[in-house]
Every structure is written in structure tokens, then in C-alpha cells.
Design a binder for these strands. Structure first.
Lengths: 196, 196, 196, 196
DNA sequence: ACATAAGCGAGACGGTACGTCTCGTCTTCTG
DNA sequence: CAGAAGACGAGACGTACCGTCTCGCTTATGT
């Protein structure tokens, strides 16, 4: 996660220019999409954003952090963690946007990011902490609640079930397997017993 | 892809020393397994292999090509396609070796290979056809047979179910999630209804 | 010639550290004096100066430029132009210091400087005008006066005689011929008839 | 001096191809004249001469030896060591060709060679041994004979006098001082007392 | 109102790896 | 054996980034 000040604005001195944040993230995203992680250079991003390097390092501690945030924003990975009391609805609300994106224009960006993560431990670390972790936790939470409500049998393997949707989605994306409109529906049908 | 000679041996001059190929690939593989892609440096590989840098660049045009080939050679895959008439047994026989390798020393190797495949369409294509495709086909075949035998309900989503084990295994591997000894058992428990 | 800034200090950004200039030139000079031109390596100079390679290449475009400047700075010349009325004394006073330096630690430095001048016409030009020219003129002046005083015969070839001492000194230096303590004395004995 | 077989031709096997000698020396000379010593690379010379590298190293032990011989041949530095019994004549016969060459088209080649010698200790060493040494020895020999014959006074400083002509010639060449047609004559007039 | 503290563009700095080049040696095959 | 071709170990070259550190300047705020 970036070194974002969450609010403070109690700090003395000149405040950070929000236009810089935008310009930097935009530039980073463009370069990443064009050249991949290795093609991103801080000097290059700074130049393209019309910004000094210090202005970047004041916000992000490393190239990895910058790229993570850029991709997260750029692909508008949404961080909503829904909890409506209906497992199907919640899972759909969390997973369908990912599927849509992986079937659309962002596909290349997202898979490229997934790939680069493996090549750059820093990147992986950063992303796991800032994004994946929370989602995983929430998925398990939703599954546990569903068991309590009786939507899933009591002996359900929570940790495992919670991984099935993202695992299948990414698996299909990475291997180029087709994901039809009813893809998520089929997954949920497999995981959630039909209501009697 | 590497600058491999087509084996002609009609070229004049001193032939390439095959011992160098081996030493370089071995060294690259070791460093890669220990430090990951970013940790591989040509100077380091050259030193460890007891070889000049030029000897590496004579064979591969860049670090990326070298690593791809090293991993491809190092990660030899086994391709048994069992069919004993028992789904649990067959899936175990197909999937457990993969899990074992992904939990063992080859883990980084295999995951990085999975990653590099994404960057080299040719490699991906070839690998899909020669290995993955057959396995996928066989898995579906096994699932279909299990339905016929009544081990799985008749309305089972064959294509989807068949992807779940590899998807979950790779998902855990790629995200560094723990895979305990009973990992495959839990997957099978989830997929296959308990025998009454 | 080096990429010297004209001292403007109107440039934006962090100014160059003068201590680096000094350290690099010093290190280059030392290596050069010890190992000769071919023995100078940028990595070596950088290491000895405690400086990154980029810091050198930011200032000089190549090894050659660096060495030229280092030597030029290191080989400061003295330019006394004596005129006591005694040819032997004046010539000794002008030439002995040169011999001493060429026999001492500065030998390699000075000869290499003489060499580099040949490769850098600009340097040669400037040096000829500012140092050599005046010395040559003064030598001829001294010889002419000596003729008037009768220390030398009236038909002496002024221009030629005036070149003999420096020519012989540099010739011996460049070819590594020995220059004993009485070297200058022998030259003068050859040129100036013994007083009756 | 090169590893020339001076004669042998008693060796078994295929004799060396004299055309190779010529092609290599020619190529080396061209590159040297165009690019200077540092610009000469064995690979480059081999390619330009249409010859394998081994064929060069079979004849010369190093780049320095090759370049020395190439320049010596190319500038047709003649190795005649005349001894007619007349000092003026012998000195003229030895020195005038050098002056002519330094005033003519070979000037650049020769001075460049003189310069590069200083930069490359190997080169200097090679050249001193193979060319300069013998000439210097012979000059001293001639001077000694002239003293015996009474052409020079008995107290003449042999070693010093012998160096004056080459020292003055090279001094003038390197500093761009004019050398008129009577340049050598003036030197000899200075050194050799007029015949009574 | 104006000092203070931080932001900003620019770019220097010590490092490290890159990919290229040359050296002088070694190894194959063909005449 | 000579010769053409070219692989080999070694190591310097000059470039490009990284992440940090000054510079001189600008911009809010808080007293």
C-alpha cells in the first residue's frame, strides 16, 4: 500500500498536489500496459508525468508499490466487500466484475499484471497485502455466514470453497479457456446446493 | 526463444561446447530456483557456470530467453494418464505428483514456468497442445466415466468440475497459499459426494 | 576535451559536487602515473575515487577525455624565464627542473601528457601558445645574447641551438634513455665552447 | 620482433602462405592509419585480410608486434646501416630518409605511431628492441669511428652526439616546427667542425 | 504579515546489471 | 601440418535504472 496520508491535513507546509498523483498513476499505467513491469522506469514515469522523481518517491516507496496502485486504480479493481445476506448475490457482486474485465479490454492488462507479479517478488508481496488478502478474508467470511444461515452444509470446507471462484476464473483466463455469460452461474451451481 | 542452431553441424569453425550449454542452464536454473527471475544476473550465472559472458550471449539473446529455456529444461513433466475405474484414485494419481512438486523444491521453478508461458505465446501454444490438452481431455473423460458409474450425479458440469483440481492447485501455488498433506483429499471431498 | 560546464550555475537541479571532480581526477592521475594510459580503467578509477561510474561519465565522455584532463591538471608547469647574463646558468635554470621532473615521479605523467597533446590538436595549440612558445622565444633570446657577449661564435645557428636542449631532454625521456646527474652539463659542454 | 622464421624451411608440413603475411600487414597498416592503435583489433584485421585469427597469432605473438611490423614495413623504414668512412655521408644516408618521410605523406602515420608507442608499453618495448636499438648502436659506432679518423675531436661525448640528429628531427616533427631542405645540413654543421 | 514547513522540478550521487566488444587461446574441419 | 571459422574465459566498455540526496523555488498555514 502506498504511503497515503489517509486524511490528516493537519500537517504544516504545502499540501501535496493531487494532480501529481493522477499524472503519475496515469503515466505508470500507460507504460506498464505498453512495456510490462520491466519496461516501467521511475525516470521514465517521472518524465512522462512531468514530475520530479522525488515527487514519486514521496508517495510510493518503490517501483513495485507504484505499479500496484497504478494497476489497481487503472483497472478500477473495486474494493467493495458486499454482505447482503445472500451468498449467491454477494459472490456474484464480487466476482462478476472480475470476469467481465477478464473478458473485456482490460484482459491483457490484468493477466500481464498477474504474470509480472510472479516475476517480481516485491510486486507480489505488495499486491497480496493490499488487495488480495482483504478479498480472501471477506470471501471466507461470507461462506461462514452462509453456513450459519444454512445455505451451505455445516461440514463445508470454508477455506477451500472460498478459493474456488477466483481459482477457476483466473485459471480460465490464463489458459485462454472460454468464459461464457453463464460462467459464474455454473460455478455457483456447483458450489451451492439448490434451494429445496 | 533461444537462438538454437537447428543441429545442422555443417557450420565451419569450432563447434559449441555442449558442456557449456549444460553448465549454463544448470547454473541459471539453480539461481532462478533460489532467487527468482529478478535475482538472476548474467554475470552471476556466468561465474557460477565457470563461463564467460560472451558464451552465454552467443546462445541466448537476453536474460529472459536464457531463463525460459533453463526452466523449460529443468521442469520436466510427467504425463501419466491413469484410468482404474475409481475417480478418487485416478484424480489422486494425476494430481498428487503435481502437488508434491509444487510443495517441494521445484515449486518456484514450476510456477515461474507457468508464468513465462504467458509471456511466450509460442511456448504456451506448444505446451498446451503437448501436455495440458491431453490432461484436460483425460480429466473430462474420467469425470464422464464417474458419472456413468454413479460416483457423480448425472447433472454434473463435466467441463467445470474437471478444471477445479488443477485450478485450485495452481491458484494455491501461485498465491503462496499453504497446501497441507490432505489438500487433494479436501478437494476431492468437496467434488465427490460421500459414498453412502 | 571535457564536457565542462562553463561555470554558469544557472542550471536547475542539484549542482555537481566539486569534491567528485577532485577525487576522480586525483584517482585517474594516480592510476595513470602508476599503470600508464592502457592501465586506466573507468571502473578502477571509480572504485578508487569512491564514486559511481555514472558520475564519471556525466563529466567526461570517454576514458581519453578523462585522462587528458587529469594529466593536464596534474602536470602543472613552471614558467620562469631567467636572464642573468650567463648562458650556462640561464639554461640550467630553465632546463634542470624539467630534467628533475622527468627523472622523478612525474616522469610518466609528463611524457604521457606530451603524447596526449599530439592527439588533441586543441590542447596542443593552447599549450604551445601559453607555455612552449614563450620558452622557445626566450631560449632564442638567451642564445642571441650569448653570441653578442662572445660566449658563442658569431655564426651560431640560433634557432637550431635553442632547440637542442629540450629536444635531447624529451628524446631521452620518451625513449627511456638514462639521464644521469650530469646530463644537462654534458649538453651544455657540447653546445658551449670551453672558456679559454 | 616478430616470430619470423628467418629461414628454416626445413619444417615439415605445409609451408606458410606468403600472401597471408602481405594481406595481414596491409590490413593492419590501413586500420592503424585510419583509427590509431586502439582502433586496431585482431578480429578486425583478420576479417579485412580474409584470414583466420590463428593465422595471425601463428606469426605474431600480440597486437603490438603485428602493428610494429606493419608500420615498419608500411612506412618502409629502411634498416640499412651505412658505413662509408665519411660521417656526414653516413649520417645523411641514415637521417635524410626519415626527414623526407616526416615532411611527406607518411608524416601522419609516423607521428601517430610515435605517439601510440607511448600509450602502449608493449608497442614501445617491441619497437625499441626491433628498430631503434640497432640504429642507435650504429650511430654511436659511426661517431666513434669518426673520432678515430679525426673528423671529430677526441673528447667528443659519443652517446650524446649520436642522439642529437634523431632528437632534433622528432622534436621538430612533433612540435610542428618547420624543417627546410637544409635542415639536416644545419644539424651536421653544428655537430661536425668544418674541415680545415 | 510573514516566517515556517513542506511540496515541487531538476538532476547529481553510489551502486549494480546490462549487453557489446576485444584479447589471446583452443578446437573443429577442409585443403 | 596450414588455414578459415569461430567458440572459449576473462574482463573493460559505456548505458540505463534504482532509490537517495541536494538545489532553488513555490505554496499554504499559523502565529
Amino acid at each position: 500500500m502506498a504511503i497515503r496520508e489517509e486524511d490528516v491535513r493537519a500537517r504544516p507546509g504545502r499540501p501535496r498536489d493531487p494532480a501529481c498523483d493522477a499524472a503519475i498513476l496515469q503515466a505508470a499505467l500507460e507504460v506498464f500496459a505498453e512495456e510490462g513491469y520491466a519496461g516501467v522506469s521511475i525516470d521514465g514515469v517521472a518524465a512522462r508525468a512531468g514530475v520530479g522523481k522525488a515527487t514519486i518517491y514521496r508517495r510510493w516507496a518503490s517501483k513495485a508499490e507504484l505499479v500496484v496502485e497504478a494497476v489497481r486504480c487503472g483497472a478500477s479493481v473495486d474494493d467493495r466487500l458486499p454482505d447482503t445476506g445472500d451468498l449467491r448475490a454477494d459472490l456474484t457482486s464480487m466476482m462478476q466484475p472480475l470476469i467481465d474485465r477478464l473478458r473485456g479490454d482490460d484482459a491483457k492488462l490484468l493477466t500481464m499484471f498477474a504474470v509480472e507479479r510472479q516475476r517480481e517478488p516485491e510486486l507480489q508481496e505488495q499486491f497480496n497485502q493490499s488487495v488480495i488478502g482483504k478479498k480472501r478474508e471477506h470471501l471466507r467470511h461470507l461462506v461462514a455466514l452462509a453456513i450459519e444461515r444454512g445455505e451451505l452444509p455445516p461440514d463445508t470446507d470454508v477455506e477451500l470453497i472460498a478459493e474456488v471462484p477466483p481459482a477457476l476464473i483466473w485459471h480460465h483466463a490464463l489458459y485462454g479457456l472460454p468464459m461464457a455469460d453463464d460462467f459464474l452461474e455454473r460455478i455457483l451451481n456447483m458450489l451451492i446446493p439448490a434451494r429445496p
